[in-house]
Write a protein that binds this DNA or RNA. Structure first.
Lengths: 228, 228
DNA sequence: AGTTAATATAAGGGCATCCTAACTGATGGA
DNA sequence: TCCATCAGTTAGGATGCCCTTATATTAACT
């Protein structure tokens, strides 16, 4: 009931997007920001300047963009809220993955600290969202896990699904329906020619996953001691 | 993660505000909308025209504004979401009234039907928000209760608190601290001169409430058969 | 080294929402 | 009945975020 304005919304989308694209500290080309947000490069460029003026990122022309500490903080705050809401929507409201992600995308811009913290407590301070992504702590740094895209595994290699990269609601819907979840054990059975679809064994169940999809499934490699 | 735009936010604030000011079907002067939203009358006037063009309300110059059926529907949807979130924030997150109200004011703009309905189910389809205001059903009409502001009661009259008018976070904070809640029984003990502060007995406990505050406490009169 | 492709900037707009200042028209009480 | 006051409109701007088109600059490959 207070201010009608919404400074933050757009800004937050940029910060979040940049944080998501840049794995950790990588330079993010302005073009890829524009692409992910479905806006023109001109607009993205403009906004990058604005964000730079506000000290949230640094832009190296022709190279890309990197979040400052401030910007990274903000971005992690957004990811934290997003993922906490995802936990809530999944566990308590029982919504399907796609809706969970879409709704969380809106809720993430709304939550002040007091709300976020109360939600966190209510959920029992979870460490991971339903898609397996780590939830940044209220303060402190997000620790980094070593992950490999499923698409990088060779025939015979095995691993455990750690998380799904969740930039895109469509893919979540698809994987939700196929019961691809964090914690499941996968083994590549076959890769079709031309880097094509993977036949995988997931907890004993056979599945076929296209390469594009496989890129979004992040794996912790399991050393297959007998074979190696 | 989809569209960056926010058509609805501002529009929704107007609709909600109009619905709140107009008890039921009363004409709402444009000035009072402007006042409540802390914007200039020019801006409010402008927006009223826009909303009229979209068929959400009708403006009678020099008289005021009335929501159309469409507009009322939209407004009730917003109130529904607001009050459902209030239930959640109170019962599950245990937040104090003021925060509950403020956060709900933001969350109300974010909830699509699927989310609202899931939330409703999760909460057990409550009929009233924590402040005692009725929650409009998903479809159908909100039934009207007969209420009297506490400020209208005379010395000796008794009633039960039905709800708190919740336009303003400050008042909620104040009443929260004084344990003024729906369901409590009140009796006016004394009214200070010049329509001043009321001394009331609330479930046996003595309280003093200013007239302004008393106007926001809505009462169901109890016929005191012995005295009357 | 030179051309091409990627990237950045400039120029000119659009839309929604807000503002102030100045003006006009309606209402209602003395 | 008339005038003060309240309500509404017009004009002229501002901001944030988006657009297209055109041009400049840099990077990268042959």
């Amino acid at each position: 009931m207070k201010e009608l304005h919404k400074f933050a919304e757009s800004e937050e989308m940029y910060l979040k997007t940049i944080a998501e694209i840049s794995g950790h500290g990588n330079l993010v080309p302005v073009t890829s920001i524009a692409e992910r947000l479905s806006i023109s490069t001109v607009s993205a460029s403009e906004m990058v300047h604005r964000l730079q003026d506000r000290g949230l990122l640094e832009h190296t022309p022709y190279k890309g963009v990197r979040l400052t500490d401030d910007g990274l903080n903000r971005a992690e705050g957004i990811l934290r809220r997003h993922r906490l809401w995802e936990c809530f929507l999944t566990e308590h409201l029982g919504l399907p993955w796609k809706q969970v992600h879409d709704f969380a995308c809106q809720l993430e811009h709304v939550s002040e600290d007091a709300l976020t913290d109360a939600l966190d407590k209510h959920l029992g301070s979870p460490s991971f969202c339903p898609h397996g992504n780590p939830i940044p702590p209220a303060q402190g740094v997000l620790e980094i896990r070593e992950t490999t895209p499923l698409s990088d595994l060779d025939v015979g290699q095995e691993g455990v699904v750690l998380c799904i990269r969740e930039e895109d609601g469509e893919i979540l819907d698809y994987l939700d329906a196929r019961a691809v979840r964090p914690g499941r054990r996968v083994r590549i059975e076959e890769i079709a020619p031309y880097d094509g679809p993977r036949s995988v064994l997931m907890d004993g169940e056979k599945q076929v996953l296209g390469r594009e999809v496989a890129e979004h499934i992040l794996i912790e490699l399991v050393h297959d001691d007998e074979t190696e």
